[in-house]
Design a binder for these strands. Structure first.
Lengths: 257, 257
DNA sequence: ATCGATATTTTGTTCGAACATCCTTGCGAT
DNA sequence: ATCGCAAGGATGTTCGAACAAAATATCGAT
């Protein structure tokens, strides 16, 4: 009954913060539960491969199955959830090959989008980058993965910074794809980085990369910006892959999952 | 009540052919109706901007609203349908800017995928291209857009040919994105090409491009293959854009849609 | 004890009805 | 005549129960 525990933990974690500050109009239970499930999927509170039973989810999130089906259906098209007729929904699995594919394409598409942004971005784009970078730098790194609030905060601002870099690319489709890849990569990152194993040197390098990319972008130095961005992604991928192998080794040793 | 007519027509068109030949196991009403709606959306039987009312859809497709909600939810994440809480679902609109974005990115990603396929494709990949090309060339072009069966057949084989070119790219994510862009482009193509206005010269050029791309791909001439493929896309886009402007002109003259 | 078939339980699927929201219509006041 | 407001109808949303399929447990035969 590991599944039930996992779902229960996901719920208790998520119910801390409300869905949105305003929480005003035009929202339905289906939309809310979609957003909550999506967050919990990406954050890894729902474990890859885990079955998503309606009764459990219904109890954990406090909604009926009608909104749940709606949310899960959308998540299937988002590739975060798998579905087999008459056999229910499961959390999409992680795999090393998927991780490699994901990262390679993300690097290509993000660099592409960054180039376009540099070519076409205006002052507001520049301002947003600086604002997002500032907020990211002032966000404390979590000392433990258990400190979910800090992890969520940092991930959100990190995402926002990377989004700000490419926001002016002028292509909604490209942004959409980059967003999808970014979400999936975050799922790997958070599933895998169990310990804050990062050395001080690594963290410093990452921070420098963020700043350098931002500077190069605003200076309209496309070559430099994309080079650093690609290096930044490459570095993250290597850390994730190293941890992935550790985690899957310990998993296969622990149980036959 | 144009909406009701459109939905009724979509249904009558789709009910001609069964969902799948075997139609055996593991399928649910939700899955079936998703596939049917998806086809009708792409084929343009459901008009852009049109409201998708549950009662109409339920009557037209002969299913309850539970499976309908499930299908429509997925289609929202597929970007084929829009949703506003408490105001229902509508067919995603078409726009010139979206068309431009779509086509530019499709060209880039498809050429990228083609390059990868050429680098890594094996004999089966080559064989599939030749098979798909052969089937496409032997498929009669529809003399009228009213001849839906022929249009569907041609579109399916055309899609399959283009898919075969990039199938060996080795990146599921890239294939997924190319597929999404291809589906959306097909929606524009079919919405807009009301008359088979294509000159004999144009058709001949398109056929030649198909054959040349296939040959260049199999000859592992990446430069030539991607150049022709990009030209091919560019040609299609120009035709679609020309027709798009005509159609939207006649639409804005006819009614205030 | 193992295998296979049947019975039971669990789980997913679908429908119909109750409920909430939005849109339209009609009325009255300025 | 126009604007604002209230009543009514249409539409979307959610739930609970009936239904169907799958997974599990039970029992008997070899």
């Amino acid at each position: 009954m590991i599944g039930a525990e996992s779902i229960a933990r996901a719920e208790s974690a998520v119910s801390l913060q409300s869905v949105s500050p305003g929480d005003d109009d035009a929202t339905t239970l289906g939309i809310e539960i979609y957003a909550r499930l999506r967050r919990d999927l990406i954050a890894g509170h729902l474990k890859p491969g885990e079955r998503l039973r309606f009764r459990q989810l219904s109890a954990a999130y406090g909604v009926g199955i009608a909104p749940l089906r709606e949310a899960l259906s959308r998540l299937v098209s988002d590739q975060l959830v798998r579905f087999e007729g008459h056999r229910g929904y499961t959390v999409a699995p992680l795999s090393l090959s998927d991780l490699h594919d994901l990262c390679a394409l993300r690097t290509e598409l993000s660099c592409n989008a960054l180039r376009r942004s540099i070519a076409g971005g205006d002052e507001d784009w520049e301002a947003e980058i600086l604002a997002a970078l500032h907020r990211l730098e002032r966000t404390p790194l979590p000392h433990s993965v258990e400190d979910r609030k800090t992890v969520d905060e940092w991930e959100q601002r990190h995402d926002r910074f990377h989004h700000s870099l490419i926001a002016a690319c002028g292509s909604p489709w490209l942004l959409h794809f980059c967003g999808a890849l970014s979400d999936h990569f975050q799922r790997y990152r958070r599933a895998v980085i169990v310990v804050t194993s990062s050395s001080e040197a690594l963290l410093k390098r990452v921070r420098e990369q963020h700043r350098t990319v931002a500077e190069a972008a605003i200076a309209r130095d496309a070559e430099r910006a994309t080079t650093i961005l690609a290096e930044h992604f490459q570095g993250s991928v290597e850390v994730v892959i190293r941890n992935y192998e550790e985690v899957s080794r310990s998993l296969s040793a622990g149980n036959g999952d």
